[in-house]
């Protein structure tokens, strides 16, 4: 089982072969297509990430100390970005997610998507995934 660092390094390495922006975006769109089917029933307002031009839904499950994310978006680029985050963060522990370093986004060359004006929800997705980690940590791992 790999950790967040190894998974994000691997994705950054995959991206490093593209020097053309179009290839890079085609790859992001392809990654999005690899996401498992996200049932319509889960596309509820409570799973919706606010503040995006496109609609993005993220759900999370806690199993044996690990968090598994699922998600979808009506925009393909956003879906690809969601898929990247899900691939990197799924399977990690709450602590790992809370403390994870997201600088790989920079290395992939998606930094522009971190700008608050882009409104594509990358910031919102990361924030929501970290919030899930905090919630699961306090629910399952806090010693009372």
């Amino acid at each position: 089982m790999t950790n967040i660092k190894e998974r994000s390094d691997e994705i950054a390495a995959n991206f490093s072969v593209f020097d053309d922006w179009l290839d890079k975006y085609n790859y992001i769109i392809e990654i999005g297509k690899s996401l498992p089917v996200f049932e319509d029933a889960k596309k509820s307002p409570s799973n919706l990430i606010s503040g995006c031009q496109s609609q993005v839904w993220i759900t999370a499950e806690y199993r044996d100390g690990q968090i598994f994310f699922a998600g979808d978006s009506d925009a393909l680029i956003t879906k690809g970005i969601a898929s990247i985050l899900i691939q990197v963060l799924s399977g990690a522990s709450p602590n790992e997610i809370i403390n994870c370093d997201m600088s790989f986004i920079d290395r992939i060359g998606l930094r522009e998507h971190l700008s608050p004006t882009r409104a594509n929800g990358l910031n919102g997705m990361i924030k929501q995934m970290k919030l899930y980690a905090i919630a699961f940590k306090s629910k399952h791992e806090t010693i009372i």
Binding site: Q53, S54, A75, T78
Partner: peptide, 12 residues
């Protein structure tokens, strides 16, 4: 085609 997708590529 989602306007966000198209807009992102047109920006490029």
């Amino acid at each position: 085609i989602h306007p966000y997708d198209a807009g992102t590529l047109l920006d490029k």
